[in-house]
């Protein structure tokens, strides 16, 4: 899957999700689900992807349980649990096989999302590890002043603000410099922008999409 264009992967994920609603046959869904599990082996980050899929599997089982408890029929419950798993898995597969930069390039170039928004998505992921370290140092600093959490939900929320506020305040201060620096780096006018990570659809991509359509039609028609 890593050789396909980002847009192709998005397309495949969408198609498999839509397909899961075109049938009420558990067997067909099982085949789609199986195909997803098999494709994990073609990924570079097998382990972490498998772990994510395993978590979703547990989640699907829980959904199944809740429905049975609420009195749904076994088939219906099984159908919705499998649909959920198929959709969630398809997203995981796209994410684990594509670089964020490639995804945003596909979103801008092929899905016509405005570049500002695509940029925001990548930048958010860039700052997550930094802010995670910051949240750690904030909680250490507050622990050194006797911070303990506990008590009623409202009190807990109030004392939890101790940890959030310094981060929010620092973010506000930082956002001003960031805005200036973005402007200095020519951010804003996206019409003439180059996209280094743009992945174009080539023969393999069209073939993959065609194959998938054929495969699904056969499944939906003859099973």
């Amino acid at each position: 899957m890593r050789d396909l264009a980002a847009f192709t992967k998005i397309l495949l994920a969408l198609m498999v999700s839509i397909n899961s609603f075109l049938t009420t046959e558990p067997l067909v869904l099982a085949v789609f689900l199986g195909a997803e599990y098999v494709s994990v082996f073609f990924l570079t980050k097998k382990k972490s992807a498998a772990r994510a899929l395993a978590m979703l599997f547990v989640f699907a089982c829980m959904l199944l349980g809740i429905q049975l408890l609420c009195g749904s029929s076994v088939t219906l419950s099984l159908l919705s649990a499998m649909r959920m798993a198929i959709m969630a898995n398809s997203m995981v597969l796209v994410l684990f096989s594509t670089k964020t930069q490639q995804l945003t390039a596909a979103l801008v170039k092929q899905c016509h999302l405005s570049y500002s928004y695509a940029f925001m998505v990548t930048a958010i992921f860039r700052f997550v590890p930094d802010l995670l370290a910051e949240s750690h140092s904030v909680s250490e600093a507050q622990a050194c002043r006797g911070y303990k959490s506990g008590g009623s939900p409202y009190n807990r929320m109030r004392s939890y603000m101790m940890l959030i506020k310094p981060m929010v305040f620092r973010a506000i201060a930082r956002s001003e410099n960031m805005a200036v620096s973005l402007e200095m780096r020519g951010f804003g006018d996206s019409s003439r922008r180059t996209f280094m990570s743009e992945t174009h659809m080539v023969v393999v991509d069209y073939a993959a999409v065609a194959f998938f359509i054929l495969f699904s039609v056969c499944l939906l028609r003859f099973l």
Binding site: M120, A123, V128, L132, S135, M167, R174, E176, M178
Partner: peptide, 22 residues
């Protein structure tokens, strides 16, 4: 561009809080 940078940092904080908050 401030609305962009504020949103970036705030949503990044949001992602973290979802991970770590009780």
């Amino acid at each position: 561009l401030r609305w962009i940078t504020i949103t970036i940092l705030f949503l990044a904080i949001g992602v973290i809080l979802r991970m770590v908050s009780p």
